[in-house]
Write a protein that binds this DNA or RNA. Sequence first.
DNA 1: AAGTCGGGGCG
DNA 2: CGCCCAGACTT
Length: 358
Amino acid sequence: MVNANSSSVKSDFKNASQDLLYWYDKMARRLPWRLSPDNRKKGELPDPYHVWLSEIMLQQTTVPHATPYFLKFLDLWPTVQDLAAAENEDVMREWAGLGYYARARNLHKCAKVLAGLDKFPNTIEELLKLPGVGPYTSAAVGSIAFDLPVAPVDGNIERVISRLMTISGDGSAAGWAEDKKEITARVQELVPARSGDFAQAMMDLGATVCTPKTPNCMICPWVESCLAKKEGNPEDYPAKPKRKPQPIRKGLAFLAICDGQVLLQRRPDSGLLGGMLMPLSSDWAEGREYVVLEEAPIGADWKHVGQARHVFTHFALHWDVYVANLEQKPDLEGEWIKLEYAMEAGIPTVGKKALKLV
DNA sequence: AAGTCGGGGCG
DNA sequence: CGCCCAGACTT
């Protein structure tokens, strides 16, 4: 529901942008892909490759989780041309553990596009054409790398602006969808000349002060202008629709061991864990009993060694793990990886959970 | 508009 | 345990 107050944004939040920038000049987080406000005020801008790479990694991913991956990727591939020239399997291996593997595939595809251009795209229209770059990332790269007069809207900024302007959903999916559009439209009116710092300042505010559960309003640069604070219940904003509970899927993992090596197979490019190396497995399904001898890829003396559990976005997996020590390698597709290297072979977390049971 | 797609951290 | 995180893409 949008606040019924019909007075203009500009009169209500006239000083909000400058208040936030003043706070950011002192409190900005130092992050590996970020240029300090001091340097930006001298006219410097960050490397668009760094900004783009970080933004892809940070989609639905926390800063602490993404940071070591960002440093590793820059070390392996210092320029976008280097990344474009990499083998896709190497990119996927280095991305392993970061999740949402379609991002890695689109990242590599996008690097090849970028390497063929004269300069990094510097308009929203051009950025939106790039694979893996949507409304958020185009605005983030546009503002942070080029100071285009746009504001990205991510989960942090949705929350911060929702509270500042008391724009909140009614708990329904449709209501929240409408309010996200409203937030996106109204935050654009706040964008100051330093649009890149403004974007990063809102993210910092959401990450360190205006947090989801218990916002620390006492140290907030917007405490005077925030309508939700005036209402007294900023923690109630925004009211998002509840996610429905995840069903449990059950399946069996088959760790075929031979000569100190384990058999891994690369999954198809599309779908869950697309393009990633994983142990052999049965299908995963809800409410079904499994018979080892029927589901196993080969007949062998399979021994149950435990259960790996993993929560995906829309289901949880209970994966019973079976191991067989084979005399000779069977005629199966895949790659035999030495067990002592398996944890560094680029296997998604769920696969590593199963392998740890060996 | 709803579903698909990881993983980790925090209360 | 549920919720959240610098979302994009498909149907």
